[in-house]
Write a protein that binds this DNA or RNA. Structure first.
Lengths: 157, 157
DNA sequence: ATTTCTGCAAACGATTTGCACAGGG
DNA sequence: CCCTGTGCAAATCGTTTGCAGAAAT
């Protein structure tokens, strides 16, 4: 993973008078070692592989910090738990398309969407700071060919 | 409220072999007596005003039915609890703009947004069934005039 | 009569928190 | 040293569920 993530996070922590610890280090390393979305519990497992002394409580205490730093995004996919998305650092304006057939979550960026966000907000008398766009859809390939080759390819498009 | 809501819901319930009860009646009446968003607990309070025998359990058991019927929409506003939106019957494609200054939730419809949903999905090889768009923004009037007259006007635009 | 519904209260499960000790500055 | 961070286990709180009686068909 990009070690720049560590830098940026610790800059943020330092600016808040917070300390560098081995547990936070492990959690941060785990948090940005993937481009997949994960739950708090997923992250606990990943962080434990780096440093087995990491506890669930520390993960739950660190997550809000990562979110506040802007490096990690909390997501509501309408499921039971909260998910976290580490891809906003590299793609700050990306959106999600959820395949109803295989439950895969695809990410996409779209300039028109971003422009529209601003136009609509202005029209209503607002200045937007961000948006959440989630499209739910069925896979065409599955319908026509009976198979969904996409299952393996859930990355930023 | 429009009594047609009752009809449509009971049609749905009947089609599933479920029964018409006074508690469900009270909950349905409460659920569509407003255009505001509410939580399960809010709905319990509203339903109790109609029929005080309604219990929290029944509200929680009825909500998924209303959602499944398509008359009510479950919403994640990124807050603690789930919210429910009764306005999808009349405005099936509406979206939300959340004012970060007064926390009011404004609803809006936009054809371009709907078109874009389809274009983006098609481009990725999908056929969309729905979308969730949430814009977070600051009120211009509050910034320039120091007051937000909008606080009283949270309706479909 | 049969089956679904209901209220109650207990259970659930993800997240939060109080505490006493560990460890960074 | 001082003060923040940690693990543990208990608490929290919205939501779900088992059960025995009530109501619908």
């Amino acid at each position: 993973m990009d070690p720049g993530h560590h830098h940026r996070i610790y800059e943020f922590l330092e600016s808040k008078g917070l300390r560098k610890t081995s547990q936070r280090d492990a959690i941060i390393e785990a948090a940005f070692s993937t481009t997949e979305h994960y739950t708090a519990d997923d992250l606990l497992l990943m962080a434990k592989k780096v440093d087995s002394s990491v506890s669930r409580a520390t993960v739950y205490r660190t997550l809000p910090l990562l979110v506040e730093s802007g490096m990690l995004r909390e997501m509501d996919f309408g499921r039971d738990h909260k998910f976290y998305d580490p891809n906003y650092v590299d793609h700050p304006n990306h959106n999600h398309l959820i395949c109803l057939d295989c439950a895969k979550i695809l990410e996409f960026e779209d300039v028109h969407m971003d422009t529209l966000e601003i136009c609509i907000s202005k029209r209503m008398g607002f200045t937007p700071t961000g948006k959440v766009v989630r499209i739910e859809a069925h896979c065409d390939e599955l319908r026509t060919a009976g198979v969904c080759k996409r299952r393996a390819v859930a990355a930023v498009a």
